[in-house]
Simulated scan of single mutants.
Amino acid sequence: MNTTELLPRIAVTLGDPAGVGPELAVRLLARPETTRMAEVYILADAAEVEAAAQAAGVVVPLSAAPRPGYAVLLDDASAPAEAIPVQQVSQAAGERTLHQLKRAVALANAGEVEAILFTPLNKTSLKLGGMNEEDELRWFARELDYEGTTSELNVLPGLWTARVTSHIPVSEIAERITVGNVLNTIRLLHSVLVDSGLESPRIAVCALNPHAGENGNFGREEIDQIAPGIAAAREDGMDASGPFPSDTVFLAAKRGDFDGVVTMYHDQGQIAMKLIGFDRGVTIQGGLPIVIATPAHGTAFDIVGKNAANLGATEHAFELAVKVGSRIRAAKAAV
C-alpha cells in the first residue's frame, strides 16, 4: 500500500497576498514534519511560493507527486503580471485570493481533497474582488452547493465555540435569535466536537442579554428562544446547558467545565477566545461537507515583510484539518 494512501489530502492557499498569509504558509510547509501528516497541495504559482519563501528565509520541499515530507505545487500560471501591492486593501488582492480559493473548492467538489487550509484573508479586498456574500463561510457554502446549517467555529486547544449569528449588524441580532437557530447551532457544535474525537461533548449556551435577562427584566430572548432551544437539544440527547451570562461562562469553560460554547453573536465569543489564546486561535467553517480551516487572526499589514507573524495559529489550523480530514478520508475508504 502507498504510504500516503490514507493520509488526509489538504489544499493550501496563501491567503491574501498583501498580508502575512504567504509567509505563514511557506514557513508551515517548510517543515518536513508538517507534510508528513498529510498530502499537501499548494494552490499558487511557483513565483509566488519562491518569493514568499525567500522573504521568510525558508525552503519549501516540493515534489511532482505526493510523498511524505514534500508538498505538491499546483501551478496554473495565472499570477498577475504586475505585483500586487502589499500592506494594503485592493481589488487585485481580492481577485487573486478568490481565484485560488475557487481552485481549492473545485478539488473538494471533485473529491480530490478532504480539507482546505487558507491563511488570513481581508474581507474588504474580497468584496472588491467579487465576493458578494456576507462572509467567506457563506461564499464557501454557495461554491460547495451546500444549504444546511453553517456556523463559523472558533477553536483553541480544548475549547470550541459556535455562534448563532455572525457577520451582521448588531441591530439585527435579536431577530435572528430563534429556537430553531439556537437548536441548529448546538447540533452543529455537538457534531463537530464528536468528529474531533469527543464522545459526549459538554456544551454551554450563552445568554443574549446582560445577566441572562434577569428573568425577563432585560429582555425575553432567554425565556422565549434560547432556553427552549437548549431544552430541545437535551431532548435529542445532547449535553447542553444554559443560558449563562456571557461575562462569566468563559471562566467556567477556561477551567475545563465545558468543551464548547454557543454564543449569540460574533464578538460575544471572539473577544473571550482571543484573550484566552490569540496565538493558537483557529476558525473552522463549520457545517460544510469538508474541513475548511484558517488562523483566527487577520492579515497583519503592519508586520508584512518583517517575518514576525506568529505561526502558532496556522500550525493549529493545519493540525485540526489533519485530524478531521483523516476521519473523512477513513470514512471514504470504509465505503
Rank of each mutant, 00 (worst) to 15 (best):
M264I: 03
M264T: 01
M264H: 01
M264G: 00
Y265E: 02
D267G: 09
D267C: 13
Q268Y: 10
Q268T: 02
Q268N: 06
Q268F: 07
G269T: 03
G269E: 01
G269Q: 04
Q270F: 15
I271N: 11
A272R: 11
A272H: 11
A272I: 08
M273W: 07
M273R: 06
M273L: 15
K274A: 06
K274M: 04
L275N: 11
L275E: 14
L275T: 14
I276T: 03
G277K: 05
G277D: 08
G277Q: 11
F278W: 05
F278S: 04
D279F: 13
D279T: 04
V282C: 05
V282K: 01
T283W: 03
T283M: 07
T283R: 02
T283H: 01
I284Q: 00
I284A: 03
Q285I: 09
Q285P: 09
Q285V: 13
Q285A: 15
G286P: 04
G287M: 01
G287Y: 00
G287S: 06
G287D: 12
G287L: 00
G287N: 07
G287W: 02
P289W: 00
P289A: 01
I290P: 12
V291S: 07
V291R: 04
I292P: 10
I292E: 08
I292Q: 06
I292F: 07
I292V: 15
A293D: 00
A293I: 02
A293Y: 00
P295N: 13
A296I: 12
A296P: 11
A296W: 10
A296N: 14
T299E: 05
T299M: 08
T299Q: 00
T299K: 00
A300G: 08
A300V: 10
F301H: 08
F301G: 08
F301E: 04
D302I: 05
I303Q: 09
I303T: 04
